[in-house]
């Protein structure tokens, strides 16, 4: 959890989510985005919360489970190009603090969204669906799994 320290690891994806301030920044970004959506006059509070949840889940799905390789370092031509960001975090180790944190955040957002939408059925279906999209790929059982070859790395 150090910043500006020399590392022997040449792939930043392995560790940048564990760096100091990263968790707080992540939460702050979600909060700011939520305030931004809430400030739009035509969104009611339940819609704003569902939007926050959906946008967060889609964004994190794209960032963690779709992007492969090393976006912060284009030189890498090794194993990393076949792996998603999530698979690279902490060198692929499971149940590390960072990975636990990244799994709990979408769940917490779901609880909040449910609370602010007053447990409405339509909102529930949307929120639960996107929550599942965000947390199911994080299961250790799905490490390296590509359903129907979607997002498969190919030459």
């Amino acid at each position: 959890m150090n910043v500006g320290v020399a590392r022997s690891d040449d792939n930043p994806t392995h560790y940048y989510f564990s760096q100091r301030g990263m968790w707080v920044s992540y939460i702050l970004i979600i909060f700011m985005a939520h305030l931004l959506i809430l400030s739009m006059p035509f969104f009611s509070t339940p819609v704003a919360w569902t939007l926050t949840n959906v946008l967060h889940d889609v964004a994190m799905f794209m960032i963690l489970h779709v992007t492969k390789g090393t976006p912060w370092l284009t030189l890498d031509a090794g194993k990393a190009r076949t792996e998603t960001q999530w698979e690279q975090i902490d060198n692929g180790e499971q149940f590390t603090p960072t990975k636990k944190f990244l799994t709990i955040v979408p769940m917490a957002l779901f609880f909040l969204a449910s609370f602010y939408t007053k447990y409405d059925t339509v909102h529930f279906v949307i929120n639960a669906g996107f929550c599942a999209l965000s947390i199911i790929p994080k299961l250790p059982q799905f490490h390296g799994v590509r359903f129907f070859g979607i997002n498969q790395w190919c030459r």
């Binding site: 149940f95 636990k100 779901f110 529930f124 639960a128 929550c131 947390i135």
Partner: peptide, 20 residues
């Protein structure tokens, strides 16, 4: 659904990290 999520969180908190 929420109960399942809470169980999941509890499991996450108590599971040990391992390298696959």
């Amino acid at each position: 659904f929420e109960a399942l999520l809470i169980l999941w969180i509890i499991k996450l908190i108590f599971s040990k990290s391992y390298a696959p």
